[in-house]
Simulated scan of single mutants.
Amino acid sequence: MDQFLLFFETMPTWMKALWVFFTLAFFWVLEGYYSLVTFQYKKWQHAKVNLVLLLFVMIINAVFGIATVGVFNWLQVSKFGLLHLFEAPVWVELLIAIIVLDFVAQYFVHFCLHKIPLMWRLHIVHHSDKHVDATTGTRHHPIDFIIRESFALVAVMLTGMPIAFYFLYRILSVAFTYFTHANLALPLWLDRGLSYIIVTPNMHKFHHHYQLPWTDSNYGNMLSIWDRLFGTFVYDDTSKIKYGVDIADHTNDESIGVQLGIPFNKNVRSKRQ
């Protein structure tokens, strides 16, 4: 286990970037053969704005990497955090760390992005995509992503986890992000069965329906337990889903300028208004 974790602790930056592009490309190609929805769109043109936003995300990630190293150095010296309060096998500590990260840095922050009006205006960019596919997983307004990264650091400090745990979580999170957004048709029995444990492509698609209440459901990224526990779980007929978000339906979802400006565009109403 120590050698396994050491791999993630010493994983070079180029390999992490390669993992992002490999998993994105894998699900992007796979969905072309096993599509849930047959889109009438130009796949590369649709991907353009999402990939530009991915570039912003990677730049922010590099800057946050400096802050992350500082946090982990402080934790190592201070012994602050939940995992320093008791002794447990490494695999138990790793499981606790991933569960806390999945709740705080995925489910809880995602819930806040929907429920707090100022945060929701940033998150509209993610939901404005009218053709949800693997590249939609990269579609985040830069400030939206900064908020997400900040919550991740809070989870790190709460647990006092070692840096290897965090890097392993990031690797898993990337894979789940592209898997759940992919326009992928798993056998219904498999998708529904897996949704009792993890977030699946069908499950997440209801979250991208253009109207409430489905838009405010299925917030999870890896574990589906949070949605089931807090009553935000939805599973229905995927043929009823229409992608996008009704309050920004008139906006050009393939223009990077329009998308970056959505949070400040007074013509895009808040769903609370």
Rank of each mutant, 00 (worst) to 15 (best):
T10H: 07
V109T: 04
F167Q: 08
H131D: 05
N252V: 10
G70Y: 13
K48S: 11
C112A: 14
M58D: 08
F108N: 02
A134V: 08
L75Y: 05
D129N: 13
L36V: 05
T138E: 11
Q106C: 03
V63G: 11
V20Y: 13
M1C: 04
W28Q: 11
W14G: 12
L186W: 13
V37Y: 13
L190M: 14
L172V: 01
L223T: 07
K43D: 12
H114A: 08
K48N: 09
L153E: 06
I247F: 14
Q259A: 15
G231N: 02
T200L: 04
D102N: 08
F4L: 12
G137M: 09
M1Y: 07
Y210N: 08
D2Q: 10
K205W: 07
M157N: 01
Q40G: 08
N73K: 15
D253V: 06
L94R: 03
R228H: 14
I146Y: 07
T23N: 05
D236I: 13
L118W: 14
F145W: 12
T232H: 07
P263H: 05
H140P: 00
H114V: 08
H209S: 02
F264K: 12
N73R: 15
V245L: 12
L36M: 15
T232R: 05
S195R: 09
N267I: 02
F111K: 10
M157E: 02
I124N: 03
W91I: 13
L24R: 02
D236F: 14
F22C: 11
L113H: 12
A248N: 10
Y243V: 05
I59V: 15
G261F: 15
A248E: 07
G160D: 09
A97Q: 03
L82C: 01
T232M: 10
Y107W: 15
A67W: 14
V52K: 08
K48D: 03
F264S: 11
F21W: 15
G137D: 11
M15N: 06
F111M: 09
L172I: 07
L223Q: 08
N218L: 06
M58E: 14
V57H: 05
M58F: 11
V90M: 11
F21Q: 11
L101E: 01
F72C: 08
N73H: 15
A105F: 01
P142T: 04
I124S: 03
T251E: 12
Q45V: 11
L184M: 13
V104F: 03
N183F: 06
F39R: 06
L83Q: 04
G65I: 08
F27S: 03
V104A: 00
D191G: 13
K240T: 02
W226M: 10
F145N: 10
F39T: 04
R148Y: 00
F8T: 01
V156S: 00
T13D: 09
L212G: 12
S224K: 04
I147D: 00
L54A: 14
A134F: 10
A185V: 06
A97C: 06
V92G: 03
A134T: 13
R139P: 09
N183K: 10
F145C: 03
T68Y: 10
R139V: 09
H123T: 02
S173Y: 11
R269V: 00
H131G: 04
V245N: 00
V109D: 01
V245W: 00
L190E: 06
P187G: 14
L30D: 07
H126E: 00
V132W: 01
L51S: 05
W226E: 06
I197R: 06
N221C: 01
E87V: 00
I225V: 15
I96Y: 05
